[in-house]
Amino acid sequence: MSSTPPSTPKTAEDTAVGTARVKRGMAEQLKGGVIMDVVTPEQAKIAEDAGAVAVMALERVPADIRKDGGVARMSDPDMIEGIIEAVSIPVMAKSRIGHFVEAQVLQSLGVDYIDESEVLTPADEVNHSDKFAFTTPFVCGATNLGEALRRIAEGAAMIRSKGEAGTGNVVEAVRHLRQIKNEIARLRGFDNNELYAAAKDLRAPYELVKEVAELGKLPVVLFSAGGVATPADAALMRQLGAEGVFVGSGIFKSGDPAKRAAAIVKATTFYDDPKIVADASRNLGEAMVGINCDTLPESERYANRGW
């Protein structure tokens, strides 16, 4: 495997897979949508029928990973293949941070996106995987702009807030998204002299920092993840600037998953129309039981994983 990203071909005889445009462009197609955690083919079908733009195939939703403890790893290939068979929307799956062999396995299974995720137990406490070495694109979590840009520098084609997965509490996702947006806004005001120091402070490559300062946004799609449990949560993240949302435990840990899933999809599309968000919020049955993030011990905060 080579770490040099393939470039755009010039003639009709040449085709190139795994280019930056194909990887980042895939995430562009997911914008405005909801990506749902599922653990069985049946759940994947419910998610697809509810209007999910993609599903995240995993063995346990984050709330159960929290409850069960132990080491959380990549899911069983049989389970992932079962989900790929069950739906026609894209299927994502999680590898541990730095576990590039799990990522190789996921690529060989034909998943459409790999989430190098802090929700699983990290396999390497120094290095993330080299994501340019893969044809399959990667999404990675971030708590701030520097972290987002380091992941993009490693080849991530999509960024999501980390939030605090499996809590049903949106507070950390809000914190991370606001942090990323505020740091981008601050860069906009910098002149060229200041961007060098900014890159040093952000611990991110200067070229990427300059690109963000010029674009006023990340060069890849930015989603929100980690704690969304209600239609209003999803709309909140959209109004704060997320281009779409991941919902993990929030759907299948609730009383009526099909109904809640459809409601979150509606609220994500019409995030700026309170009447529609209100209608989507009616009569959904029980939401997942939440966890207060300030009572979580440091060791159980997934957002601290990754660097």
Binding site: P9, K10, D14, G25, M26
Partner: peptide, 24 residues
Amino acid sequence: QNESFESAVDVKGIGGDPVEGVFI
């Protein structure tokens, strides 16, 4: 997605170089 690709495409009615086709 692993088969998603880029290739130049000749489009009838569009002169000049072929269009850069991004197929996802």
